[in-house]
C-alpha cells in the first residue's frame, strides 16, 4: 500500500480540535494530532504540566474530544496507572491509557514515576514528546537538550550531552520501545498501533522541533524534524521484546551541519565542533541509537 492510500485510510476525525492555543508551527501539537489518528476515541490521555497541557485548555473550554486528565508535573505515568486500576475494578476493558508527557515530564521531573511504571510493567503507553527544552517556562535547558544548544540558561551552549531516555527505558526491560518523528507520520502511527495491540508497558519517544526555542521559521518544523532523521542524529527504530529493528534508513545521510546550521540555537558552534558531532554520528552508524 502506498503512502497516499495509507493516509487516506486514517480517520478524518479530529480528537484535538483546531482553535487550541499552541504556537504557530509547534511540533508538539503535530505529534498529538498524528498520535490520535492511531489511538482513536477509546483513549484516556494523561498530560502533566507541559506545553501540550496548556494548549488544550483555556478557562471553560477544551480542545480535547477524548477524556483528558491534567496531572501534576512529576506523575503522569503514576496517574495513568491509577486510572487503569480504576477501570479494571469497574470492569471496563478495551480502553487505551496513554500518559503523554514532554521531555521534562519524562526524562527529568517525571522520571521517577516513568521509571516506576516501566519497572512494574503497568498496562499503559507512555509517549514522550521531546522538544529538547522547558518550553512552558521560557525555554530552559533540560536533560534531553543536546550538547551545544543555546537556551536561556545555557547562553554559551549546553556543556553536557542529551540524556538517552530510549536506552534507559529499554534497560528497564519494557516490551515495546520506539523512537519516532513528526516528519514520518506513517512510521509513528504504525508504531503506536503496534503498541496499542500489546499489553504491559510501552514507550514511544518522538522528536518535536519548536520554532521559538530552536530558532527557525515556523514553516520549517517538519523540514527540521526530517533533517534530524536524515543526518543520523535521530534514528528511527523499535525494540520489540528485545529485538531491535531500524524502521527507516535514509538512502543517503545528509551532513549533520545541514541540521545544525538551520537552527539559531546552534549558531555559535564552530566548524570543528560540528565536525566532532559528525564523527560521533558516523561512529554510531546503523546502530539505531
Amino acid at each position: 500500500m502506498g503512502e497516499r492510500e495509507e493516509l487516506y485510510r486514517l480517520p478524518r476525525e479530529e480528537l484535538l480540535s483546531g482553535g487550541h492555543q499552541g504556537i504557530s508551527g509547534y511540533g508538539g501539537t503535530i505529534a498529538v494530532r498524528q498520535a490520535l489518528k492511531a489511538l482513536g476515541p477509546n483513549t484516556v490521555i494523561v498530560v502533566p504540566a507541559s506545553a501540550v497541557a496548556t494548549v488544550g485548555g483555556l478557562n471553560t473550554s477544551t480542545a480535547w474530544r477524548i477524556p483528558f486528565v491534567h496531572s501534576l508535573f512529576e506523575c503522569a505515568p503514576a496517574m495513568a496507572t491509577g486510572i487503569r486500576a480504576a477501570l479494571e475494578i469497574k470492569g471496563k476493558t478495551g480502553v487505551t491509557l496513554v500518559s503523554f508527557a514532554g521531555d521534562a515530564g519524562s526524562a527529568d521531573i517525571g522520571f521517577q514515576s516513568l521509571s516506576g511504571a516501566a519497572e512494574r510493567d503497568e498496562d499503559i503507553i507512555h509517549v514522550c514528546y521531546d522538544d529538547e527544552a522547558y518550553l512552558n517556562t521560557g525555554g530552559q535547558a533540560g536533560g534531553t537538550t543536546p550538547a551545544g544548544a543555546q537556551t536561556v540558561n545555557t547562553p554559551q551552549g549546553k556543556p553536557t550531552g542529551k540524556k538517552d531516555l530510549l536506552s534507559i527505558i529499554e534497560a528497564h526491560g519494557a516490551g515495546y520501545v520506539a523512537s519516532a518523528s513528526i516528519a514520518f507520520p506513517l512510521d509513528f502511527i504504525a508504531k503506536l498501533r503496534k503498541a496499542k495491540e500489546r499489553k504491559g508497558f510501552r514507550y514511544l519517544h518522538i522528536l518535536t522541533p519548536n520554532p521559538a526555542t530552536w530558532g527557525f521559521a515556523a514553516d520549517q518544523t517538519i523540514h527540521i524534524a526530517r533533517l534530524a532523521v536524515d543526518c543520523g542524529l535521530w534514528p528511527l527504530f523499535e525494540v520489540e521484546d528485545g529485538g531491535r529493528r531500524v524502521t527507516y534508513a535514509p538512502v543517503r545521510r545528509v551532513p549533520v551541519a545541514d541540521y545544525i546550521r538551520a537552527q539559531g540555537r546552534f549558531r555559535h558552534l564552530t566548524g570543528d565542533q560540528i565536525a566532532a558531532m559528525q564523527a560521533q554520528v558516523d561512529a554510531s552508524a546503523g546502530g539505531g541509537r
Partner: peptide, 21 residues
C-alpha cells in the same frame, strides 16, 4: 458543572486563534 463549560472540543467554537495569523 457550569452550563456549557468543557464540552468536548468546545475550544474550536469561535476560536481566538482566528486573528493570530
Amino acid at each position: 458543572t457550569t452550563p456549557g463549560a468543557y464540552q468536548p472540543g468546545n475550544m474550536g467554537v469561535n476560536p481566538r486563534t482566528a486573528g493570530w495569523k
